[in-house]
């Protein structure tokens, strides 16, 4: 049976003031688009978010557990968790249940001590710290684009446009990526959501 699959393309990128997460919005069951406006960017703490790809059910369940753990951590320790803490908890769950999960995650967050950080947790449950990370089936089409265009210490506007152009490229070539482009910008100021629609060729920021 075909289960709900998603995360056909998503990415997270560090820039000068923090980190940006971006994703398309397509959820499929086989060839059928079950949801064309999915939100794959999930908040697990104030300025720690994740991009979910793989099984919708698995990644939602894992994100829910981590969200609970991080809330508990913040209350018990009187300080917000770091992106590293979130990455560690995500990894433990993904690694110890590797036989039963189909989850590819990118964790991105901003904290006072480390600034913006990106961690990726691919299928086996390993943890990788990266300057930027791309994931999902659509990501295979944009390895070259990202390698050629990513730069260290971009301004926010540059980084937003980098993410958008990369996702547009993935959506263009990958059949299982599509719909709207969603982004979250995480900085010292908090979390800021972006939405771009295909009918204006993703030019206008909505909301």
């Amino acid at each position: 049976m075909d289960r709900l699959k998603k995360g056909e393309v998503n990415m997270a990128v560090t820039f000068k003031d923090g980190v940006i997460l971006g994703a398309d919005s397509r959820t499929t069951t086989g060839a059928y688009i079950a949801n064309r406006v999915t939100d794959k960017l999930t908040q697990v703490h104030d300025t720690i978010w994740c991009c979910r790809s793989g099984s919708a059910a698995d990644t939602q369940a894992v994100a829910d557990i981590v969200k609970y753990q991080l809330e508990l951590f913040a209350m018990m320790n009187g300080k917000p968790p770091t992106t590293q803490t979130a990455g560690a908890i995500f990894q433990e769950i993904c690694y110890s249940n590797k036989d039963r999960l189909s989850a590819g995650l990118i964790i991105a967050g901003w904290d006072e001590r480390h600034g913006g950080q990106v961690y990726s947790i691919p299928l086996g449950g390993s943890l990788h710290k990266q300057p930027y990370s791309i994931g999902g089936s659509g990501s295979t089409y944009i390895y070259g684009y990202c390698d050629a265009n990513w730069r260290e210490g971009m301004e926010e506007a540059e980084a937003v446009s980098f993410v958008k152009e990369a996702l547009k490229e993935a959506i263009k070539w990958d059949g299982s990526s599509g719909g709207v482009i969603r982004m979250v910008v995480l900085t010292a100021k908090g979390a800021d959501r972006h939405l771009y629609l295909p009918d204006t060729d993703y030019k206008v920021r909505h909301q």
């Binding site: 590293q84 990894q91 600034g115 961690y119 990788h128 710290k129 990266q130 260290e152 010292a188």
Partner: peptide, 26 residues
Amino acid sequence: EEAPVDGEVGSGPACGAGGKVAGKTH
């Protein structure tokens, strides 16, 4: 200092993360 997560694969990017709060010690 900034320490890596125990068991993190590789040493991570050479470039520093952006948006750190300057002047704060930990």
